[in-house]
């Protein structure tokens, strides 16, 4: 690994060859925080980014910005634990993923609408994935907004939303089960999209879809 640099409260720790864990040394993000994560995966290399625990977004306006570039024939797996939107939070997430042709990516994101029995805080996330200068997926999620909460068109009665973007040499097959769909995108990639009542169910649904989207996954 070439460079590994971090400042508290977000610490990066190498836990294996090509494996990094995000370790949060304080609760948060809290109002006023702006966490930034930049990932560069050089051509022909492999990196996995995990986190040791879920992220709890606490009250106030906070930001999380993730920028990732994945080179030709490189592979990135990004699968941190879920972000939990505590009541009163106002989290803005921006993810920008730039892929070279032939890059392989597994990018999972999960949002939980409040802790157990708690009303959800607010969140506005934006995800942009670009492959070879052509947009592959642009997706914003609004949570805690009266326009979308409880709408049968957006989340229905779910309390968690999650998705996994996969690129690489994948079959272009559609699959559907309760609360989960495997959606081949117009460009070279597949989105697994899921809604669920709790995090355990959400992860189970996503993993079901991920294995169908990429049959080489364990």
């Amino acid at each position: 690994m070439e460079t590994l640099r971090s400042d508290p409260p977000l610490t990066l720790r190498q836990t294996g060859p090509g494996v990094v864990h995000l370790v949060s040394t304080a609760a948060g993000p809290l109002g006023g925080d702006h966490f930034e994560l930049t990932i560069d995966v050089a051509p022909h290399t492999t990196l996995a980014v995990h986190s040791v625990a879920s992220t709890l977004a606490l009250p106030g306006l906070s930001r999380l910005t993730v920028t990732a570039r994945v080179g030709a024939r490189a592979a990135l797996r990004y699968s941190p634990e879920p972000i939990v939107l505590a009541a009163g939070c106002d989290l803005r997430v921006a993810v920008r993923l730039t892929l070279a042709p032939g890059a392989t990516v597994f990018w999972r994101e999960e949002l939980v609408f409040g802790r157990y029995g708690e009303a959800s805080g607010r969140c506005h996330s934006r995800f942009d994935a670009i492959v070879d200068d052509v947009p592959l997926l642009r997706q914003e999620l609004l949570v805690g907004d009266p326009a979308v909460d409880d709408s049968p068109a957006v989340y229905g009665s779910a309390r968690c939303v999650g998705s996994t973007l996969l690129t690489g040499d994948l079959p272009r097959e559609r699959h559907l089960a309760d609360g989960c769909a495997v959606l081949p995108l117009a460009g070279p990639g597949t989105l697994v999209s899921a809604l669920a009542a709790d995090t355990v169910e959400l992860r189970r649904r996503l993993e079901w879809g991920e294995r169908l989207a990429d049959k080489s996954l364990p």
Partner: peptide
């Protein structure tokens, strides 16, 4: 590139179903 991109996961599932 910065035009709105709001997703509606339930609509996606309904459309496929």
């Amino acid at each position: 590139s910065s035009l709105p991109a709001h997703a509606a996961p339930a609509l996606d599932l309904l459309a496929e179903q």
